[in-house]
Structure formats: C-alpha cells, structure tokens
Nucleic acid binder design. Structure first.
Length: 594
RNA sequence: GGGGGUGUAGCUCAGUUGGUUAGAGCGAUCGCCUGUCACGCGAUAGGUCGAGGGUUCGAGUCCCUUCACUCCCGCCA
C-alpha cells in the first residue's frame, strides 16, 4: 500500500464502509463543534468529510490546524445517517472517522481563501497562482484544457496527421507581429527570434513530403494583450496538408471542431455545416470579419437614400457628399420601447467616439411616417424605399450611423452587439461557427498609401494563375480564410502559394524586388524551387477553443500560469534583470535612461 | 502610445453634501458548543484609506501629479 493513501478523496463510497483507509490531501474546511470536529479533506479527485471527537488524543491539535495544510489521515470509513448525507459531494454518503493524522505540508496564513466563491483581484491571484489553481472552477478549467488537447491529438492521429516539433529558436521574420528576440552567445550581435507561428516550417514539412502535419504549437508574439489574447505566448493547433484545396481543409477542421465542441459542451451548434461568408459581405452585414452569428441583427448600407431629394437630413447628406456612407440596423417591433432605450444607445455611441446614432421608428397613420428626432426629414416615399431595402416593417425602428467607411464599420458593428444585448437577442446556449472566405490579397496602407499584403504573403491568389491581373491588385482575392465562433476569431489559414514565379510577381506588387524576396525569405523560396506540392493549412487557437468550452470571458481563466497585461509573471518575477556577467557573455550593454 | 474603470484591514467590500475615535463579512488569535457540510455563539488583534503634493479650521471624500491592476482603441491573425 502507498505510504500516503489507500484511496483518493473522491473515491470512497457506501461499499467501502468499515474499511480502514489512508487519505492525504488539503484541509479544505473545518467545522468545529467543540467536542466534535469535521474536516473536509480535498485533493484533485474530490472531497471527503473526516470526523474526530474529543475522545481522540489528536483532537485538540487538529482543532487548531490551518486551512490548506496538507495532512495524511488514517481512519475508518463509516455510513452517514440519512439526515446527514450530503448530496453535493460524491463521497457524501460516507465519512471517515480519524484515528491518526500527520502533517505533510504546513500552511501559513493564506493571502486568499481557496474555499470561496468570491472573486479576487488578478494581482493576488497571479502572484499566488499555485493557490488560485486549487480553486474549483479554475482547477476544472485546466483539467478541461488537458482533456481537450488530448482529444484533439487523438482525433488528428485518427485522421492520419503526423505530429512534429519545430524549432523554438529561429530567425526573425520581417512581416507580421513584433518578435521576441533571444541574443546569441556564439554569434555576438546576432539574435534568434521565437516563432510567431511555425508558418514557414510547416510549409517546409510539406515540401519534405510528409503530407499531413499537426502540432500543438507554442506561438510567441510581442504585442499588447486583450481579454482573449495572452501577452507573449499562446497555443495553436497548427496543421498543414498537401495536395488539397480550400474545401479539403474546411472538411477536416469542421469535423474536428464539431466533434470537440459536441464532446466538451452541452451547448448546441447553431450550424452543423458552417456557413461561408465572403469577407466583403461580412464587413457590410456585420461590420466586422468576426461576426457573432447568434446575433440576428443585420446591417444595411443605405447611403443611396441620402442622395434623394425628398430626404432633407442635411448633416448626413453633407457627409455623404464628402464620401461618408450611411449604414443602419433595423430592430423588429420596437415602437413601444421607451425613449430612454433609444437615447441610451445614442449616448453610448457618442462615448465610443462616434458622432452618435440617429434613429426613428416607422409608423403608419394615413401615411407612413417616421417618429423620432430625425423622422421629419424623410418623406413617405423615401421611407417606403428604405423599408424595401432593409426589409423593415411598420413598428420597427432603424438606427443610423454616418461615417467614413472604416469608422462606420467599427461603430455600427459595436452598435449591433450593443443593441442585441439591450434587446436580449443573443442565445447564450449556442455556438455559431462560420467561415469567412475570399480575403483580399492586398490592401492599401492608409498612412503610407502603399499597397501591402493584407494577410499572409504566402497565400495563393484566386483565379487562373496565368490570368491574374496584377494591375488591379486590390481586386485580387486570396484562398485565405478564418473560422469564427460567437464573434471570436478562432483561427485563420490559407492555401499557400507554392509557385516561386508567382510569388515574385505578387511581392513586386507590394514593392519588393526579387532580390529583397530572396534575401528575406530565402529558406521558403529556395525550398519551393525544388518540387513543392500544392498545400494549405490552418491553425485554430487552443486557448480560445478552451475558453469557449469553459464559458470564460478571459483567456487567463484557461491558462495555467498566465502573465498579466504588462507581460509580467508576478509569481516567477519575469521578466527580470540579468547579471553583468550574463550581459557580457552575450555581448550586450543596457542603455541606461538618464 | 491613447481612453475608461478600480485601488479603504490578510481577502471581499461599505463609507452620505468635506465634520468627532474609518466600519461589515470572511480569515487570524482566544473562549463556549457532539451532527455540521457557507455550522453556530462571544471576545480580541489587525488600517501610511496605493504614493506624493495642494485647497481647507478640518480630506478616505475636492483638485493636481504619479504608481499598480484591469477593460478598450492603436497593435496583433
């Protein structure tokens, strides 16, 4: 028998009554009745109620024991009487009468209680993460994460994918996010970079003929954090396949995501086959390329209405003449909503930095009229046209925003979320997946006015390869796609461009000469010149998948040892200063600020 | 880099128009209690009100600066 336990704390049942048992665990809770003491002993597997009375010589010592002390107890399993059964815990039909005990690990006064539903500041939780992780919800989240990863791994194996590791110390890449850099001791003045993703390696694996690759890959990006974005590092299910088209990737990923979400959540999938929404359509209908499809509201472009003579809303008309657009959201049957409902949304929009949201409600007396602060500016005919365009009906309300296209998309997209929340339109018990497809290959950088790759320079452009019109680069679409769930971007991927000649051409559009491309992407270009298969892939974010499954709004709730928003690990005290010797070895000096 | 929120006991929080000695629950310490499972009851200790400056007879409360945490924009796929 183990020195520490014969059973774990979630194991004992009625069938074990009268057995002698040895349990080890943390003192979760004490209930001291003076002459009778209950101790809830907790480990990874559960909680067992242990009991001791004053007849036992250990009673007074156990009475004083600190919560969260790790102890070993020796005792006998007994039945609980009917009135004292606890249905909330799995071991609730029995309890253990303590005979002897031993302290295995003592505990100082706690900076935060473990057994409590209270919320604690992030600061204290991260500093004492090892205590925080004992708490039920987050402990279960981390176990869920482990199970999800195991499941995904076995599904990928079943689908014939091979798991490979790729280098962690690699070279800095010129495109994309900021790199984390690691100085090289043996090569003074030179730096490794931690990979933002194993992008080039996975393509090289395809060129090497391995056909299907995956990895639960750590990715490092030195960018600022968000609630759904860890600073520093995160994990992707990185995968790549040879001899495939976009649809082949979709099939694999859809199956994997459906299986995973059905296995680990009770929520229903809104679509078993994910809808495919072109990027341009998504920007108009939802104002974003990561739409929450649980939200039934749709955005309509109604710029044209403001060119009509019988619409006299001059503020918007003026803006439209200078290139602004007008988009709107229709809310069904909201004519009886109080004025405050509308005004709060308008006020909120102003707080978001927009010029506000105009609105009116469509009513019918003898004629169709618009009721609301700006209603009088619209003729009955104009309203009819508006209703046709937006499928609005009598009794519906319409919210308008007028801005330059990019700001407009941002505010109207936020408004779409906000209004749906106010009207309680979002079914929280659904997962709504979709594909966003047909991303443009290039975009204009608004600051420099130059053409640049909108996404990944290695993506394959759409259309017949020898007929691509490079004189209209902004019209070129790419085999580039995202998968989105409930408004969270889970993943993006692409069919890759495996043809060096075509790649040079595309790079030249973005202002790179052949020479530059050879320099910056020598590994890739070189490899593609020696017989590369057509290939493509995707990389779903593991942390975000677990976040959705655990129903958490913050990625730190599914990350074992996360950093704070300033990319510091408060427990390990990273990043930290290093010694003069270390600097010297690395051939580095620190510039002191005054 | 910019904007919002928060900061009061070990933890979670209350603290009114500026007004006496800054409170509660949990935790800690001590005492009482043999069936609790958020056990109960009583007592005690515990505070640089994030920090610095200012206004005022008087500041937890008002003003300025600054720091920390967090959410968002920028950034990031």
């Amino acid at each position: 028998m183990s020195r520490y336990r014969s059973h774990n704390c979630g194991e004992l049942r009625k069938k074990d009554v009268n057995k002698k048992t040895l349990l080890s665990g943390w003192v979760n809770k004490k209930r001291d009745h003076g002459n009778l003491l209950f101790i809830d002993l907790r480990d990874n597997y559960g909680i067992t109620q242990c009991i001791i009375d004053k007849e036992n010589i250990n009673f007074s010592k156990l009475e004083k024991i600190q919560l969260e002390t790790v102890i070993k107890i020796e005792g006998k399993v007994v039945n609980r009487s009917n009135e004292t059964i606890n249905k909330d815990i799995e071991t609730g039909e029995i309890e253990v009468i303590i005979n002897k005990y031993e302290i295995l690990g003592s505990c100082k006064e706690l900076p935060m209680p473990v057994f409590s539903d209270q919320e604690y500041s992030e600061e204290i939780r991260l500093k004492y993460r090892f205590i925080d992780l004992r708490r039920k919800k987050i402990h279960e989240n981390i176990i869920l994460r482990s199970k999800v990863i195991s499941f995904i791994r076995s599904e990928m194996n079943k689908l014939g994918f091979l798991e490979f590791q790729t280098p962690i110390l690699t070279s800095s890449s010129p495109e994309g996010a900021r790199d984390f850099l690691v100085p090289s001791r043996l090569n003074p003045g030179k730096f490794y970079a931690l990979p933002q993703a194993p992008q080039q390696f996975k393509q090289l694996i395809m060129v090497s003929g391995f056909d299907k690759y995956f990895q639960i890959a750590p990715c490092f990006r030195d960018e600022d954090a968000r609630a759904d974005r860890s600073p520093g590092e995160f994990y992707q299910l990185d995968l790549e396949m040879s001899f495939v088209e976009q649809e082949d990737i979709f099939k694999v990923v859809e199956k994997l995501l459906v299986n995973t979400f059905e296995k680990f959540s009770n929520k229903k999938l809104m679509f078993s086959e994910f809808p495919k929404i072109p990027y341009a359509e998504s920007l108009i209908k939802y104002g974003t390329d990561k739409p929450d499809l649980r939200n039934p509201l749709i955005i309509n472009d109604i710029t044209e209405i403001f060119l009509r003579k019988d619409v006299s809303f001059e503020i918007f008309k003026k803006l439209v003449n200078t290139g602004a657009k007008v988009r709107c959201i229709v809310t069904k049957n909201t004519k009886n909503k109080p004025r405050s409902f509308f005004d709060n949304i308008d006020k909120w929009a102003k707080e978001q930095g927009a010029s506000g949201l105009a609105y009116f409600t469509i009513e019918k007396d003898k004629e169709i009229t618009a009721k609301g602060p700006i209603g009088k500016f619209f003729s009955s005919e104009a309203l009819k046209e508006l209703m046709k365009k937006t499928k609005a009906e009598i009794g519906d309300s319409i919210f308008f925003a007028c801005e330059k296209e990019k700001e407009l998309e941002k505010i109207i997209s936020l408004a779409r979320n906000r209004i749906a929340k106010d009207l309680n339109l979002i079914n929280e018990n659904l997962f709504a997946f979709c594909w966003i497809v047909d991303y443009p290959m290039f975009q204009i950088n608004e600051q420099t006015n130059k053409i640049e790759f909108s996404h990944n320079p290695f993506s394959m452009p759409q259309g017949e390869l020898n007929k691509i019109d490079l004189t209209k680069p902004l019209d070129i679409l790419a085999y580039q796609y995202d998968v989105v769930c409930n408004g969270i971007e889970l993943s993006s991927g692409a069919i890759r461009n495996h043809i060096p000649d075509l790649m040079y051409k595309l790079f030249s559009v973005a202002g790179y000469e052949k020479k530059n491309v050879d320099e910056k992407f020598s590994g890739m270009i070189n490899a593609l010149s020696y017989g590369a298969p057509p290939h493509g892939g995707i990389a779903p974010g593991i942390d975000r998948i677990v976040m959705l499954l655990a129903e958490e709004k913050n990625i730190r709730e599914v990350t074992m040892f996360p950093m704070n928003q300033n990319a510091q690990d408060l427990m390990m005290k990273a990043p930290s200063e290093i010694s003069e010797n270390q600097l010297k070895e690395l051939n580095l000096t620190i510039k002191k600020n005054k």
